[in-house]
């Protein structure tokens, strides 16, 4: 599913003429098989989010290559990557990233609109998704009218509505209480089993790390461990 080869990244800081280079990732290589749940752990500032942003195409690597579903995405241009994200990736963010002026329904419908799916099909898919995350009764609510857990479910519904083979999550439980977290983890495992969706999850949380088939540990931008669970 995902192949990371010799990936390095450094940020350039400061104004022109007075620039310093900050190396965040060094020589990362790993492989994620289809249907796996892989978690990424590490201390704050170890480069976890940077790694995920590289895989998502939000930033471009200084060196190395990223291959997803046999496509060398690290060589894509911006439009190609956007298209690829729409087709193959779903995202769950720590602070949900819902569009505040859109209702739960409209937020979930957005990827379908972007993909150009007909209105009729859209309606069915969106309502199905709302049911799946148990938010049928909240379809007309704006994000500000939903609890954190409900908002996270909307964002999961939005990530899933196009049924992507891969979901990337950066601290998905960061803003949730432990009970809601349980719910979410169960849901992730369910989706993984039933639909074979591959997950790549960043977390601080041991609970979350436990649901992974494998854990990758980063320290100071280097991969120090890749633990395989039974």
């Amino acid at each position: 599913m995902i192949d990371i080869n010799q990936l390095s990244h450094h940020f350039t800081l400061g104004k022109k003429g007075d620039q310093t280079s900050l190396s965040v990732l060094e020589n990362i290589s790993f492989h994620v098989r289809a249907g796996e749940i892989v978690t990424i752990v590490g201390r704050s500032g170890s480069g976890k989010s940077t790694l995920l942003n590289l895989i998502s195409g939000f930033i471009r690597p200084t060196q190395g290559e990223i291959i997803i579903q046999n496509q060398k995405v690290s060589e894509f241009d911006e439009s190609e990557f956007a298209e690829f994200r729409l087709q193959h990736m779903g995202f769950i963010f720590q602070n949900f990233q819902l569009i505040p002026s859109m209702t739960a329904y409209q937020n979930i419908e957005l990827p379908l609109i972007l993909k150009g799916i007909s209105e009729q099909a859209r309606k069915k898919m969106t309502l199905d998704m709302l049911k799946k995350v148990r938010l049928e009764d909240f379809s007309g609510h704006y994000p500000s009218e939903l609890s954190g857990g409900q908002q996270q479910r909307v964002s999961i519904a939005r990530a899933l509505v196009l049924e992507p083979p891969l979901i990337l999550a950066d601290e998905p439980t960061g803003s949730l209480d432990s009970e809601t977290e349980e719910d979410l983890l169960r849901f992730i495992q369910e989706l993984n089993k039933e639909m074979g969706i591959t997950f790549l999850i960043i977390t601080h949380d041991d609970e979350v790390a436990r649901i992974g088939d494998r854990t990758i540990t980063l320290a100071d931008g280097k991969m120090v461990e890749s633990v395989v669970f039974s």
Binding site: S56, F58, E78, S79, A82, E83, F84, R85, L86, Q87, M89, F91, Q97, L98, I99, P100, S101, L110, P111, L114, K115, R158, A159
Partner: peptide
């Protein structure tokens, strides 16, 4: 912010 979110989930710059 909305445009950023849209781009993140796959809206191409052209759109």
């Amino acid at each position: 912010p909305d445009i950023g979110i849209m781009k993140a989930i796959g809206a191409s710059p052209k759109v």
